[in-house]
Computed example of a mutant assay.
Amino acid sequence: MSEKKGAAGEQLSHVDESGNLRMVDVSGKDETDRRALARTEVLLAPATMDLLVRQALPKGDVLAVAKVAGILAAKRTHELIPLCHPLMLSYVDVSFEIDQEGCRVVIFAEAHTSGRTGLEMEALMAAQVAALTIYDMCKAVQKNIVIADCRLLRKSGGKSGLYEAPELKG
């Protein structure tokens, strides 16, 4: 079988010479300090936002539960994304900015490790699961909640070095 090539003609990292999927071998890479920061947001109706801020939703303290869910998700990313490496995380945090006027909760998820592979997926997973938890805890009072704009803001470490989202550079 011919080699699988990417758009730029390079050998795909997760496909072997026979076209079979594989986990990338990172054993030859140097361990470096790695960090990643992701964000997403949850858009709520004004009445739902008011209940969230007052901690008056039927399921309880939404942000406390969403924080724990996000941290747990980061730790289990390799169980859900098939070709992700299990990582020994040294730090994970999920934080929230409440934009009451804009009726949105902005979620930031940060992860750190010292290792041979990046942890962008762990930060993204933490942000998304925190958002889904907010959705779950608010759905009794609002059905049209929107989860939007999930993206990597920053990552550092490894051979590729620093990445910052374009809006952070200027």
Rank of each mutant, 00 (worst) to 15 (best):
V26P: 02
E101I: 10
E31F: 11
V26E: 05
R39L: 03
R35S: 07
L89T: 02
I81K: 08
K59Q: 15
I98K: 05
H14S: 06
E97T: 13
D25R: 12
Y135G: 06
P166N: 07
S156P: 02
L119I: 13
L72Q: 12
D136H: 13
D50N: 13
R22G: 04
Q11I: 11
K67W: 01
N20H: 10
C138N: 06
R76S: 15
R116F: 06
A140M: 15
R39N: 07
G118S: 05
D50K: 10
D149Y: 15
M125Q: 09
R104H: 06
T113N: 12
A73K: 04
T117W: 00
V105Q: 02
M1I: 11
L37Q: 00
D93R: 09
V106D: 05
E167S: 10
C138V: 04
L72M: 15
R76G: 08
E41H: 08
Q142L: 07
E10C: 11
Q100R: 12
Y163K: 02
L72V: 14
K59E: 12
C84H: 02
I107K: 01
V141D: 02
R116Q: 13
T48L: 06
L21Q: 11
V129R: 03
R39C: 07
A123Q: 00
H85K: 05
L52F: 03
V53F: 07
I134Q: 03
A69E: 07
I71L: 07
L37C: 03
E41A: 13
G157C: 05
L162E: 10
V141F: 14
G28M: 08
G161K: 05
L12F: 14
F108A: 11
T113E: 07
S27N: 14
A69T: 07
L89V: 05
E167I: 11
V24W: 08
E97K: 10
E17R: 14
V92C: 07
G19N: 15
K159S: 15
M1W: 10
A127Y: 02
A74K: 01
T40Q: 01
A7R: 11
S95W: 01
E101G: 13
S114Q: 13
Q100P: 01
R39W: 01
G115T: 03
D50M: 12
V141E: 08
K155F: 05
Y91R: 11
K29T: 10
R22M: 13
V68H: 08
L152H: 05
A56Y: 11
A109R: 00
S13G: 09
K159F: 12
V92Y: 01
A148N: 15
M23F: 10
L80E: 09
A131T: 08
L83P: 07
G9W: 14
G158T: 03
D50H: 15
V68T: 12
C84L: 09
V92R: 00
M1H: 10
T77K: 02
R39S: 10
H78R: 05
G157F: 00
K67H: 08
R35D: 03
V62M: 06
Y91H: 10
